[in-house]
Structure formats: C-alpha cells, structure tokens
Design a protein around this nucleic acid. Structure first.
Lengths: 120, 120
DNA sequence: TTCTTATTTCGCCAAATGACGAAATGAAAA
DNA sequence: TTTTCATTTCGTCATTTGGCGAAATAAGAA
C-alpha cells in the first residue's frame, strides 16, 4: 500500500505527469525538461526526485549531465501498470501533443545553451 | 489531463484507497465506512465526496441513509482502468485483508447502532 | 589549484490537504 | 409541527506540497 500511495502521490501533479509523457520517446536531461515545463531548475529537480523515488523514472549520469528516462523494466508490476495507464490515458491528450511539439523544438537547440540560460 | 489529475489526487490518500478496496464486495453506508476507517464522520464524508467527484464511487440515497458503491460501468475508460489498477495492486495486500476481516464484523452489527454511536 | 557549469539541496512562503468539532441540512419519526 | 437521526458543510489547525532564490555539491575546464 505504501508503494502504491507513493506512486499515486507522484502522479498527483500535472508537472510530473508531463515529465512522464515527455520521456516517452527517450531520455532527456534536466535542462530540457526544465525548458519544457518553464519552472526553475530546482523545482524540476525536486519533481524528478519524487518520480525517481516512486520508481517511475530512472537516471544516469554522464559527467556533469544527468539524464532521465522511463524504466524499460519497471521495478514492480505496480509501477509498470501505473506508467502504462499514464500513457494510455494521456498520450494523445492536448497537453501531451503540445508538449511533444515543444520538445521537438527544444531538442533542436544546443543543450549547453539551454542550461546556461537557466543557470544563476 | 484534468480528469486524470483528479483521479490521481483522489487515489493519493490511504484512507480513500481503503474505501475503494472495502467497496469491492458491495455497497456500504457512511457509518460502516466510518467504523472501518476510525475517523470522524465528517472526515469520511469529505473523502467520499472527493472519490465521487473523481468518478471513482457512486452514491444512492435511501431515506436518511446514503450508500456508496463502485461504478459497474465507470463514466470513463480512465476511471475504469484506475479502479482495476487499484484492485490488481492492493486486493491481496495486508491492509486490504485486514480491512475485509474487520468489515465482516462491522456488517454483522446493527448499522443504526453504529451510526448512533458516531453521532454528536 | 581555481574557475565554471549542471544539478541538487536548503530554507522560505503560499497554497493545498487531512484531521477535527460544531453547525447545518435533509428526511424520517413522533 | 417538533424532534430525532444520518450525513454534509464550514471553519479551524497542523501538516504537506509546490513554487522560488540562494547555497551547496559534483564534475569537468582552464
């Protein structure tokens, strides 16, 4: 029940759900997700931490860069079903379509430039 | 996306999830759910209101008594999948088993007596 | 070694949430 | 009509949550 509540709490926020939808095509770095969501990097980092604690995303580090992705093999059946449910319910929603379009533009940008613009 | 977030927020609370599991065998009245959860009637009523707004439960009135049940035909696919996910993930959990046992005892009691004991 | 960069953590604030008791509401019983 | 009863709503309090900027951290670049 605790894992389940952790998952539902993680999903009970529009920003975190948008992250999950945005990660569908492949992994993204923090600054790309920050650019998409339009919040401060600290806010996005917090959301990613919550998603990771719930097992809904995984991260890998490449030097200074941190990339997040959806788990290919979810840690539990509950997590897998939660992710499938998110995609089935929202993959074609207006928000997801808009975000996907926006992400295509972001992916064309230089990630370093994006990050630089977000930093203090 | 708004419906989805409404559902996940409704599910992001242990008490409300317990309600959904408790309703699996059939409809229950407010005082029975109140007895199971051990909160004040006002608190339980609030939780039921949230679940109903999310479409996760339905209610019917019989004179002074209000009965809640799971929708046989959920209002949307998203709701149906959410309910199925809850059951698949938690129907056999320790909490659900304990609550089912407790509810069997509660169902043997006189609902009027239960309600009377809960009232001001 | 020092500086720069990408990200995370911390502390703060405002809003949301979950608990309560009291009051209100609706519907039957007397 | 009044009283009783089952439930809901309201206001309050404490906690949690989601935003921020500043500071800290980790890791590369100079």
């Amino acid at each position: 029940m605790r894992e389940f509540i952790g998952i539902t709490k993680a999903l009970a926020d529009e920003s975190r759900v948008r992250v999950l939808l945005a990660l569908r095509p492949g992994e993204l770095c923090v600054c790309q997700l920050t650019e998409l969501l339009g919040f401060a990097p600290s806010t996005v980092s917090k959301h990613l931490s919550i998603l990771e604690q719930a097992g809904l995303v995984l991260s890998r580090k490449a030097e200074r860069w941190v990339y997040y992705r959806l788990p290919e093999k979810p840690a539990s059946v509950t997590v897998g079903e939660a992710l499938a449910w998110v995609q089935r319910s929202l993959a074609t929603s207006a928000e997801a379509v808009r975000d996907a379009r926006q992400m295509q533009k972001i992916l064309k940008m230089d990630a370093k430039k994006i990050s630089r613009r977000q930093c203090c």
